[in-house]
């Protein structure tokens, strides 16, 4: 039986809880960083075809800024924090107080601010995940890119693509909900656990029927 056929509603609920806890911690970190109130949306867990993964992120050609971290340790996988380029520029100007452009690639302050943002958010997401599951997991150095979402996310699907044609996407979004309605900030997390991570994840959370 392929791995997606062994998943039950309970398994999907567990994964949803993982997204929930991870993103809640990331939201807290973001709120501290920007000194603003940040809202988190109830996470969605979907089992989808690869093409649909790209559709979830606005279509394969959609240009986005992404911070990507490989998750290493007992439950390897990939995590992406994705923003539109306009949102990324807003983030930078709020963090640094300097308006900046990310398009020319020469603005080192902007790039390092974004990298730091992705690092803090993904780091708090993963710390929460590690605490919650008692699994030893740690993030790689973050890599920042501005490119088509299809080109970026497909990299996170490579491990998975050797065993399946579908991906489990744990998607959560954060929205800044300050009074300043003119500049809401929104970012999305995409978490793709590698296939061999499901067993340790479910086991650590007491759902053992996944064999």
């Amino acid at each position: 039986m392929s791995f997606e056929e062994r998943l039950t509603a309970i398994h999907l609920d567990v994964l949803k809880e993982i997204g929930n806890i991870g993103a809640a911690h990331a939201a807290t970190s973001l709120s501290k960083l920007l000194d603003r109130k940040v809202d988190m949306h109830v996470p969605a867990v979907r089992l989808v075809e690869f093409d649909e993964v790209m559709e979830l992120a606005g279509g394969a050609e959609n240009e986005v800024v992404s911070v990507f971290l490989r998750i290493e340790g007992e439950a390897p996988g990939s995590i992406f924090f994705i923003l539109s380029p306009e949102q990324a520029e807003l983030f930078i100007s709020q963090m640094t107080g300097i308006p900046s452009s990310i398009y020319d690639g020469s603005d080192e302050l902007a790039i390092s601010a974004l990298q730091e943002l992705g690092n803090i958010l993904s780091g708090s997401y993963l710390t929460a995940l590690s605490d919650f599951t008692n699994l030893d997991i740690y993030p790689s150095v973050p890599s920042l890119s501005l490119d088509m979402v299809g080109a970026i996310l497909s990299f996170g699907l490579i491990e998975l693509s050797q065993v399946s044609d579908q991906a489990i996407v744990i998607e959560t979004s954060l929205t800044d909900c300050s009074d300043d309605k003119s500049a809401p900030i929104e970012g999305h997390f995409f978490l793709f656990p590698d296939p061999q991570s499901y067993l340790p994840l479910f086991k650590s959370l007491g759902v053992s029927s996944y064999e």
């Binding site: 690869f50 093409d51 790209m54 299809g150 080109a151 970026i152 497909s154």
Partner: peptide
Amino acid sequence: VGIADVKIGSAPDKIRTSGLGSC
């Protein structure tokens, strides 16, 4: 043409795939 997909066509149709990364 989607990810992990093959399609054929003939003129005047055009064939397109988007967001190629390591693919």
